[in-house]
Simulated assay, not measured.
Amino acid sequence: MKKRIGMLTPSSNTVLEPVTSAMLHGIADVSAHFSRFKVTELTLTSKAASQFAIEPMLEAAYELADAKVDVIAYNGTSGGWVGFENDIRLCEKIKEETGIPATTSVLALNERFKAYNVKKFGIVSPAEKQIVERIIGNYAKLDLQCEASVCLGVTDNYACALIDEAAVKRMVREIAVPGVEAITTFGTNLWAAHLVEELERELDILILDTISVVVWQCLKMLDISPTAVTGWGRLFDREY
């Protein structure tokens, strides 16, 4: 029976749709479907924060529900700085309003940190320093310590997709320092997921991309083995 994954997509994101579709390409009877809501700015202003209010995201979820999707995922990382509880409330509201189970990139990442018993991590982010500091602070509340971080200071979400492959590789290598148990490429408009397998071989460290983790989580929620995804890193080598 065909299974459908619905993805809530920030409007200025041009990466997550092709990457998600590429990951799922080899899996029979699974398809991804996308619904957008307005997001253009990556800052800590009240205007930027309002982009991640539950109401517009819920409207996008209603449209995915019209397509009879089996799971809905917010393929975005704002929960990292707005607060994990915002993502939890969003998922609860989607389930309450549509009857469809939901997850997010950040909640999926948190589950993978727990599954791999990660206590010390590194973060690569296209965002500005203040956002990354907020993310690090929120993880500290979960007793997860950031050992190394690097960011580029991008405030225009669309521009995140313009960061070239060489820059992403350089940032990952920069924070692959002793003590870091896993690295997260934190941003779903960052061309990073396709580099994970190569960088893991080179650096011998687990890399958790925020598009990859939510695809992994959606497959598990559909009772489909994530190991069906190949060529995208160690994450997909195990089912738990």
Rank of each mutant, 00 (worst) to 15 (best):
A65F: 01
A60V: 06
A148D: 07
R173D: 00
D223Q: 14
G122L: 03
A127W: 12
T20G: 05
A49H: 10
F236Y: 07
T45G: 08
P10H: 04
V71K: 02
C91E: 08
F121K: 01
D70A: 04
V177G: 00
Q130E: 14
A49R: 12
G122K: 00
I135C: 10
A167N: 11
G179M: 09
L109M: 11
S11P: 08
I54K: 10
P226W: 03
L222R: 06
G80F: 04
E96Y: 07
M171Y: 11
I72H: 08
E202G: 01
N138P: 08
E198R: 05
L195A: 05
K3V: 07
T155A: 06
L199G: 01
C160I: 12
E59M: 12
R173H: 04
Y158I: 13
T98G: 04
M171L: 11
L195E: 12
I205Y: 00
K119T: 11
K141Q: 12
V39E: 10
R89Y: 09
S149G: 15
G137M: 07
I94Y: 03
G99D: 09
E85K: 09
R173A: 04
N13G: 10
E133S: 13
A176W: 00
E111Y: 05
A61H: 03
E174M: 10
E181I: 02
I183W: 00
E200D: 00
V213G: 00
L199I: 03
V180T: 06
I123T: 12
M221C: 04
K95P: 05
S125R: 13
N189P: 11
A182F: 01
V118M: 04
V229P: 06
V124Y: 11
S35T: 12
R134I: 00
A61W: 00
P226Q: 07
S212I: 02
V214T: 15
I211K: 08
H33M: 09
V30D: 06
A192D: 08
A53T: 11
V172T: 11
I72S: 09
